[in-house]
């Protein structure tokens, strides 16, 4: 409706001037000028590179020998035959699923806890949110230090008589560690968004449900969850897309190991392009990453129609 109002406003003020530069024309010009930087940015730093990525993926580029040769679909054939790719995709999927489930789950729990009528919730809110503002690298390095075999986490566990595993060096726990470190880093953000959504649920609805005799859990499932579902959708999209971009954590904590158990797609792309100097094949992996992000986003928008309660 804002659109209509706006159009009406423009129409009404338009006949104000007889010259060529009518209000409307000037508005058009202003509009174009206002979006020019963003548009130039999108073309120069999003579209052009995307086209180039596809173009490079058809080439072999050797930096040391300074050659750039057209090889057609060679890199895509390599992608299909690359024995590392299934493992890389599995690691990527594990990381993303683990991160989204744990992050959203914990964020929701924290938000519900902080939404109780308790003293000192502000204090806890600040604590849970604080890692969001800590530099990602500082956070990751500290956890890398804590998760050493003789580090702080195992020290803490030994206080309770638990002999902790070698977190970052054993196949099963390395991925868990990377996911959990990332969850604690960013869960505060989703927590705050959930908290705002929870506070937006009208109290009358809760009271009505209580008078109907519904239990806590039923109220949460039937009223709270549906009402905050738009926020859940939005945070899950942001978290999923963000999870596909994880690089620093892998690079600092595990370097993709042990084996290739934590080699996610972006890390593999970096290895191929910048460590093995296979820029052409690296570009092919970029194309794959783009297709995955595209597919996931489309899928999530489809799910919105079915699951999300309302859109205002």
């Amino acid at each position: 409706m804002t659109l209509l109002q706006d159009r009406a406003a423009t129409a009404r003020s338009a006949p104000g001037r007889p010259s060529y530069w009518t209000m409307r024309r000037r508005d058009h010009l202003t509009g174009y000028l206002f979006i020019t930087p963003a548009l130039v940015g999108a073309v120069a730093f999003v579209f052009l590179p995307l086209v180039l990525v596809v173009w490079y993926s058809l080439h072999e580029w050797n930096v040391l020998a300074d050659t750039f040769d057209f090889v057609g679909s060679e890199n895509y054939r390599k992608l299909a035959e690359d024995p590392n790719v299934p493992g890389v995709l599995r690691a990527t999927a594990l990381f993303s699923i683990g991160l989204v489930v744990l992050n959203l789950g914990l964020a929701l729990v924290l938000a519900v806890l902080l939404n109780q009528k308790l003293r000192g919730t502000t204090f806890f809110r600040v604590l849970f949110f604080s890692p969001v503002v800590v530099s990602l690298l500082a956070w990751t390095i500290v956890w890398g230090f804590l998760l050493q075999d003789n580090g702080g986490v195992n020290g803490l566990l030994s206080l309770f008589g638990i002999d902790g595993p070698n977190w970052l060096r054993s196949g099963g726990t390395a991925m868990v560690s990377v996911v959990v470190v990332q969850v604690f880093k960013n869960v505060g953000l989703n927590m705050v968004l959930f908290l705002a959504a929870l506070q937006g649920v009208p109290q009358e609805l809760y009271e009505a449900a209580r008078t109907d005799g519904a239990g806590r859990w039923t109220v949460f499932r039937r009223i709270t969850l549906p009402l905050i579902s738009p926020t859940i959708l939005l945070t899950s999209i942001i978290t999923v897309v963000g999870s596909l971009q994880v690089f620093a954590q892998i690079s600092v904590l595990t370097q993709g190991g042990p084996g290739t158990s934590t080699t996610v797609l972006v890390y593999y792309l970096y290895q191929q392009a910048f460590q093995f100097h296979a820029f052409g094949y690296g570009s092919t992996l970029s194309v794959l990453l783009f297709l995955i992000v595209l597919a996931l986003t489309v899928l999530q928008w489809q799910m919105r129609k079915r699951w999300v309660f309302h859109e205002s």
Binding site: V46, L52, V53, Y270, A273, S286, L289, F290, V293
Partner: peptide, 14 residues
């Protein structure tokens, strides 16, 4: 569309 394209995708051409 920029929202859809992580900067990691375009790091090589950039």
């Amino acid at each position: 569309t920029g929202l859809l394209i992580p900067s990691e995708v375009t790091i090589v051409p950039l």
